[in-house]
Simulated scan of single mutants.
Amino acid sequence: MSTVDHQPLAVRAAAPAELPALPSDVGLTWRPLTPADVPAWFALCRVVDDHDRATERVAEYELVDRFKGAWRDPALDSVAGFDADGALRAYAWVEYRPVTEGTHGPVLFGAVHPGHRRRGIGRALVAWSEGRARQRLAAAEVELPARIRFYLDGHHAEARRLAEACGFATKRWFVVMRRDLSVPLPSGELPAGLRIEPYDKGRDEDIRLTHNEAFARDHWGSSPIDSEAWALDVVGGEKFRPDWSFMAVESATGRIVGYLMSGAYDQDWEPQGYTEGWTDLVAVRREWRGQGVAGALLTAAMRVYAAGDMQYAGLDVDTDNPSGALGTYTRLGYEQLHRSVLLTKEI
């Protein structure tokens, strides 16, 4: 849909002048999160993740990194509720990175301690978060389509009911898949004219541009990643494994036509019951698709995961991915494990 079909985003966003008030009768004091709150924030996340059987567990470094990046404003984009003893019992965080192409898509994060649920706190935090997301959208400098997003584990019925009660609708399903590395691996043959090379930090900008060309512009809901966000969120994370990451390179030109980025998210291994090399991103430029490039990259990754004593290779995929990724993964031996859901409000 063209942006000319829309009213200006500042109008569509319908941003509130003041954010909805948070409850004053639940024994919590509300203020923005600060870096000093990370230990208490992490403690809350661990309790919530265990109680809700979260598919992916939050790592403390991820919360530290939330305070980095010029696009983030924690003083305005976060709020947390502390009880009389100073323990953090609930929070909300609006993650919004302005983009110049694709779709503006703030993501809402939040949690309420299991012992403080069913008091209206979750609903109030969703309303607060949505209001803040609308304020951020109204101030966007580039006119684009927009949606406010919630990502939830497919089994988390309570959170999904809350999101739906607040007007969010199911938009997309994603599948987490794993591949048993004790089973013989595929050959991973490449088409003529290409070679697989280990990730090279010196070519990081080329990989980012390949991502923006191959992934962000061809995959639903994606937008290009700028160099700051790439450096911080893709290759700057504590769990990023450059030694488990690869590039597909044209032999004649040296041009990168595909890439695979891996992580070792060991905070997930004990709860899920197995070790795993995780493929964060894999993509191939359009003109090289359908020729086995993605399979060769994934096979290279599976080999180093296995060499690192990982039991499984893991990844997730949009079930409606137009590139046929789900079929590719299935042919390589990946099996569907569980699902997550995206709920949105289209703006």
Rank of each mutant, 00 (worst) to 15 (best):
V4M: 01
Y96Q: 09
H219D: 05
H104M: 04
D5T: 04
V341I: 15
L28W: 10
S245H: 10
P198V: 10
P35M: 04
G258Q: 10
K345I: 10
E238D: 14
R119N: 04
R241C: 13
V11L: 13
R286W: 00
E101H: 06
G277F: 08
E164R: 13
E143P: 01
D233P: 05
D52T: 10
T299C: 08
A40T: 09
V304D: 11
A159M: 06
R203W: 03
D83K: 05
Q267E: 15
A264P: 02
R31C: 05
H211S: 12
L44N: 02
S222T: 07
A40I: 07
R286G: 06
A264V: 12
P74F: 02
L63I: 14
T55I: 14
V234P: 02
A163Q: 02
Y329D: 12
A70E: 12
R289M: 08
L76S: 15
R172Q: 11
R160V: 08
G254A: 14
G236A: 10
Y199P: 08
F240I: 10
T3Q: 00
A90G: 02
L108V: 14
W244R: 14
E18G: 01
E250H: 10
A163V: 06
W244P: 14
L343G: 12
L342W: 06
Y96G: 04
Y259H: 15
P186C: 04
I225G: 05
G188H: 01
F42S: 09
D243P: 07
E335Q: 15
P322D: 00
A36I: 06
G105A: 15
L9P: 02
H219W: 00
E346H: 05
A159C: 01
R12T: 00
D309G: 00
G120L: 00
D266H: 14
A40C: 02
V79M: 12
F246G: 08
W288E: 09
Q267R: 01
D77C: 13
F42D: 12
E60G: 04
P184L: 08
A163T: 00
G333N: 09
P35W: 11
R217M: 13
A75E: 15
Q7H: 11
A157Y: 00
S182W: 05
T29H: 06
E95H: 15
D153M: 08
H113N: 10
C166Y: 01
G202E: 15
A146P: 00
E346F: 03
W30G: 03
V47R: 13
F168H: 00
R172N: 07
C166H: 04
D200W: 12
L88K: 10
G333C: 09
A229V: 11
G110C: 09
M261C: 12
G324F: 08
N321Y: 03
R255Q: 15
T253P: 05
H6V: 01
R178F: 03
V64N: 11
S340E: 14
Y329P: 11
G254W: 14
Q336F: 06
R53H: 15
K201W: 06
P271Q: 12
G308W: 07
L108Q: 12
E164D: 01
L137R: 00
T275K: 09
V38I: 13
M247N: 12
N212Y: 03
H219C: 03
E95P: 04
S78M: 08
V257G: 13
S340P: 04
R72Q: 15
E335N: 07
G292F: 08
V94F: 02
A13T: 02
V126T: 12
A163C: 13
R339Y: 13
P224A: 06
Q267T: 05
R66P: 11
